[in-house]
């Protein structure tokens, strides 16, 4: 199975998987992509751990908890080029709406006072399996160095395609006007 093709890894942190859907939206060009690269750690192929060094890592979502931070750190370690894919990775996105609300209020709403909450003990879940939340949602580039940012919610498939093919063929990432969209 092992080839000398460059590897691409992807992850969704505090995101909705919409950006991953957009990767799939490149449609039949995915066949061309497979010719160019192998996928490493990614929900696309369900590889859970890195198998080696990757040329490109695509990160969807910002960091809302310690698990996100750990994954992002791992990607930084294994990827030559790291890309923030979409609004949440770039600015925190919808999850960052909580950044104006103290964490305690978020917890109280989620575990005590929310309309559908049933929690007679009133305790916050503390199982070590549940990652601790960060004090706010961080854009990825405020946690580790990110090399590129592809805007959009999600970034259009054409944007992802244009950026990936440029990177994999050693060309500069230059997006035309219509491919830079924040929504």
């Amino acid at each position: 199975m092992s080839t000398d093709k460059p590897k691409v890894a992807t992850a969704s942190l505090a995101g909705c998987f919409g950006c991953h859907m957009s990767i799939l939206d490149i449609d039949d060009r995915i066949l061309q992509l497979i010719d160019l690269v192998d996928f490493d750690k990614s929900p696309v192929d369900d590889i859970k751990e890195f198998t080696g060094r990757c040329a490109v890592g695509l990160i969807e979502g910002g960091c809302c908890n310690e698990e996100n931070v750990r994954v992002l750190q791992d990607f930084r370690k294994h990827c030559d080029v790291l890309i923030s894919l979409g609004e949440c990775a770039i600015c925190g996105g919808i999850p960052a709406m909580r950044n104006n609300v103290p964490l305690k209020e978020c917890f109280d709403e989620a575990y005590r006072n929310g309309p559908s909450v049933h929690n007679p003990s009133g305790e916050y879940p503390s199982d070590p399996e549940i990652p601790l939340l960060l004090n706010k949602v961080y854009p990825c580039h405020e946690v580790v160095k990110m090399d590129y940012h592809l805007q959009g919610c999600p970034p259009p498939a054409d944007t992802i395609w244009a950026a990936l093919t440029a990177l994999l063929t050693d060309k500069p990432v230059e997006l035309p006007y219509e491919l830079i969209k924040y929504d």
Binding site: E66, Q73, L103, N135
Partner: peptide, 27 residues
């Protein structure tokens, strides 16, 4: 660790650790 110098994981977890009452299992 590859973190940006301005990012401090322990500080970022500070509120949570206090509210949940346990340390991080990762950091």
């Amino acid at each position: 660790e590859g973190f940006k110098a301005a990012f401090d994981i322990q500080e970022a977890l500070g509120d949570s650790k206090g509210l949940i009452g346990r340390e991080s299992t990762i950091y």
